[in-house]
Simulated scan of single mutants.
Amino acid sequence: MEAEFKITRTSREIYARLLDNYTLEQLNKIPDGWNNNLMWHIGHIMVSQQILTYKGAGLSTTLSDELVAMYMRGTKPERDVTQAEVDEMKALLFSTIQKTEEDYRNGIFTTYNARKSELGFGLDTIEDAIAFNNYHEGIHLGMILRLKKLV
């Protein structure tokens, strides 16, 4: 699992650089033809990771209910985020993964509610969920690379 966590940490470093290198206006901009922005994708990958791991294991996420509601699958930006929210998001990029790693090593993921992802991937164990999360973050990174050219 160390390799999976290493991939997630590297992914999060890429997302953090985006937060550092784009203005608040750019992070909030929704280009013509799109229904989301850079900030939504970053929030979405964090919420999805928490749902895949913690909710999948029947546990509470480490994120607020408000944050989950803003960035879960099927949502879109309803308002611009503030700089304070961007700063919080940057901290959460790393703290959520650190907590997941600690919780995994401490054995809190004792059960997992097996299911198929929307794309058909079998998520039978917490290890499957962690691996699938990396795939999911890669999909959104690809979208961000396209989107950032438009902001």
Rank of each mutant, 00 (worst) to 15 (best):
V47C: 04
K76H: 14
M72P: 06
M70E: 15
M72A: 14
I51F: 06
E66M: 03
T53P: 01
Y54F: 07
R73V: 10
Q49L: 03
K76A: 15
K76W: 07
V47L: 03
K76L: 12
M70W: 09
G74P: 11
R79G: 02
A69Y: 07
L52S: 06
Q49C: 12
R79W: 10
T75W: 05
I45C: 12
S60N: 12
Q50W: 02
Y54W: 09
D80S: 06
T62K: 07
G74H: 11
E78M: 10
I45A: 12
A69V: 06
L63T: 11
L67T: 01
M46P: 07
S64V: 13
E66N: 08
T53A: 15
M46W: 00
Q50L: 02
A69W: 07
T75D: 01
G74K: 10
G58S: 09
Y54R: 14
T61P: 02
Q49E: 08
E78Q: 03
D80Y: 00
L63H: 10
D80L: 02
I51M: 06
L59V: 07
A57T: 06
L63F: 02
A69T: 10
Q49F: 02
E66H: 13
L67N: 04
G74M: 12
G58I: 08
D65R: 11
G74I: 11
I51E: 03
S60K: 08
V47H: 00
I45T: 07
R79N: 14
T61W: 01
T53D: 06
M70I: 06
G56C: 03
I51Y: 03
G56I: 13
R79D: 11
K55Q: 10
L59T: 00
I51Q: 05
P77C: 09
M46D: 12
A57L: 04
S48M: 13
E78K: 13
S48C: 10
Q50T: 04
I51S: 09
K55A: 08
A57R: 05
T53Q: 06
M70Q: 14
Q49K: 09
L52P: 05
M46T: 06
